[in-house]
Simulated assay, not measured.
Amino acid sequence: MSTPSGFDELIHPATRLSVVALLAAAEWADFPFLRDSLSLSDSALSKQLSTLEEAGYLEIRKEGGGRKRRTKVRLTSLGRTAFEGHVAALRAIVEGAGPTAAPAATGPEAAAATASDTQQRPHHAKAGR
């Protein structure tokens, strides 16, 4: 199976995908909100944000100064388009990976197969007796 159009290797790692998914639902997000929501250290989140910013997927603003300095982050239109394309590619992969439906068996062969399956499955006693 080939990789569907829109699959984005940059967004795909779980941490980056989580960052982008959170930002897709907000206009702007504060650094502490992202850090706490994703259970990341400051340095781990900073690294992921820098990578996404370098790709043009994020805009990062630093407001204020000193101890009151705040970092705010948002998806750019390029980042939003990349995220939506990646999600669509993941859906295509999932939908294409389902089992091939075999025609339903009927008649004596189906009954024999069902009986055989039942006999091969172990029966476990219920807990709490």
Rank of each mutant, 00 (worst) to 15 (best):
L40R: 15
P108H: 09
T76R: 15
R61M: 00
E109D: 06
D30K: 11
S77F: 00
R61S: 01
L78N: 11
P108C: 05
L49W: 11
L23G: 07
T71Y: 09
S2M: 09
A97I: 01
R16I: 01
I60K: 14
A113Y: 04
G79M: 02
S18A: 06
Q119R: 15
H12E: 14
G85V: 00
D30W: 10
G56Y: 08
F7Q: 07
E9L: 10
R69W: 05
T3C: 02
H124K: 00
Y57W: 03
A110Y: 06
A113P: 00
G6Q: 05
L75W: 02
H124Q: 04
T15F: 00
G66T: 08
A105S: 14
F31C: 04
R121D: 03
S116H: 04
F33E: 12
A105T: 14
P13A: 02
L78Y: 04
P103Y: 05
L78W: 11
R74A: 15
R74F: 10
S5V: 00
E95W: 09
R16A: 01
S2P: 15
T106G: 09
T81C: 08
I93N: 08
L52Y: 06
P122N: 00
D42H: 15
P4L: 01
P4T: 04
T114W: 05
G65M: 04
F31T: 08
E63P: 13
L17F: 05
K72Q: 11
S18Y: 00
A101S: 11
A110V: 07
E54T: 13
P99L: 06
T100K: 14
L45M: 01
H12A: 11
R35K: 15
A111E: 14
L58M: 07
P99T: 03
V20D: 03
F33V: 09
D42N: 15
H123R: 12
R61P: 00
L23A: 14
A44S: 03
T3Q: 10
A113T: 03
A104W: 10
R129Y: 03
P122W: 02
T76L: 08
E59F: 08
L17P: 04
V20F: 03
D36F: 11
P13V: 00
Q120T: 12
Q120W: 12
G128K: 01
F7G: 10
T114Q: 06
G66I: 13
S39E: 15
W28C: 01
P122R: 02
L58I: 07
A88W: 07
L78F: 04
A44K: 02
A110W: 13
T106D: 01
G6D: 05
P32L: 11
A92D: 06
K68G: 13
H123D: 05
P4W: 05
R121E: 05
V73L: 09
Q48A: 06
S46D: 12
